[in-house]
């Protein structure tokens, strides 16, 4: 049979096997997913409101007479403690409950890719929330002359800290099929890592635990590392701490997804 006689066949779709392309595809979907429901707008508004209220009323922002944003940033870890687990609780638990996890993981998307995409989308969303607080930064510049370099560093530190919370929340979500459980586990885990090494907690251990133990526990606290960063000391150690924290929890989340298949 000559080629000319063959019936016309549509060309098969050409597939690419690009690892990051698949992460990007899921990232796109997840990011868009935040804005298909009013939830994201409620969340952003609430975040701005609470951040503003805490800063102005509890942080004595105006009375301090200092044109900086330190009280604002000091509240961030505590805000994240509630807001981020709420944001991340549905990421995997919901997919597991509705059965779409099976759909997702039978696409050529591996557990690591799925976790990475969901983490990035959530972290970017936190970045957006932070970005929306920039008017506050402009205000302090209007009121006085703050150290803008320090403020920028603090913003970066805060975003880095948020990454830690997102990774923990994602891991909590990977553990459960119930969003409420994921939220509670996320808050508890975050809280433990947040205050674990503060003097308040280390005093509990000090009487009976050795110096090494106390120092090791202190070294695990998010709060101490966050404080270091917001003081403008971008130390490799403090930044590295958050990077390691994120990597560890994302790996644990990915392993949980893989292990789930073995259930």
């Amino acid at each position: 049979m000559s080629a000319a006689l063959r019936p016309y066949r549509r060309p098969a779709p050409v597939l690419t096997a690009f690892w990051w392309g698949r992460v990007g595809a899921l990232l796109d979907k997840e990011w868009a997913g935040y804005f298909t429901t009013p939830l994201a707008y409620v969340f952003l508004t609430l975040f701005l409101l609470v951040a503003g209220v805490l800063t102005f009323f509890m942080g004595n922002f105006l009375e301090r007479g200092q044109a900086d944003l330190l009280p604002f940033f000091n509240f961030h870890p505590w805000l994240y403690l509630v807001f981020i687990p709420a944001l991340s609780m549905r990421l995997i638990a919901e997919e597991r409950k509705s059965g779409t996890l099976e759909l997702l993981l039978t696409l050529p998307i591996g557990a690591v890719q799925a976790i990475l995409a969901k983490f990035l989308a959530c972290w970017l969303f936190c970045g957006l929330a932070l970005l929306l607080t920039v008017p506050l930064w402009i205000t302090v510049n209007y009121l006085g002359s703050p150290d803008n370099g320090l403020i920028l560093a603090s913003y970066l530190a805060s975003w880095l800290c948020a990454a830690g919370f997102v990774a923990i929340g994602l891991f909590a979500s990977a553990l459960s099929r119930n969003q409420v459980t994921a939220f509670v586990v996320g808050v508890v885990l975050s809280f433990a890592l947040l205050v674990g090494g503060t003097p308040l907690m280390t005093q509990l251990f000090a009487p009976w635990a050795g110096v090494f133990v106390v120092e090791a526990i202190a070294g695990l606290s998010m709060l101490t590392h966050f404080d270091t960063l917001t003081k403008g000391l971008i130390t490799l150690k403090a930044a590295g701490y958050f990077v390691v924290l994120v990597v560890v929890f994302l790996c644990m989340a990915a392993e949980t997804l893989k292990a789930e298949k073995n259930a």
Binding site: P13, L15, T16, A17, F18, G21, R22, G24, A25, L26, D28, K29, A32, G33, T36, T37, S98, G99, T100, E102, L103, L107, P108, I109
Partner: peptide, 20 residues
Amino acid sequence: PLYGDMTVYEFLQFICAARG
């Protein structure tokens, strides 16, 4: 199982992208 809050078009777009 499907992603209920996407439109059919968005959903198929996503699947295309994810499938490479």
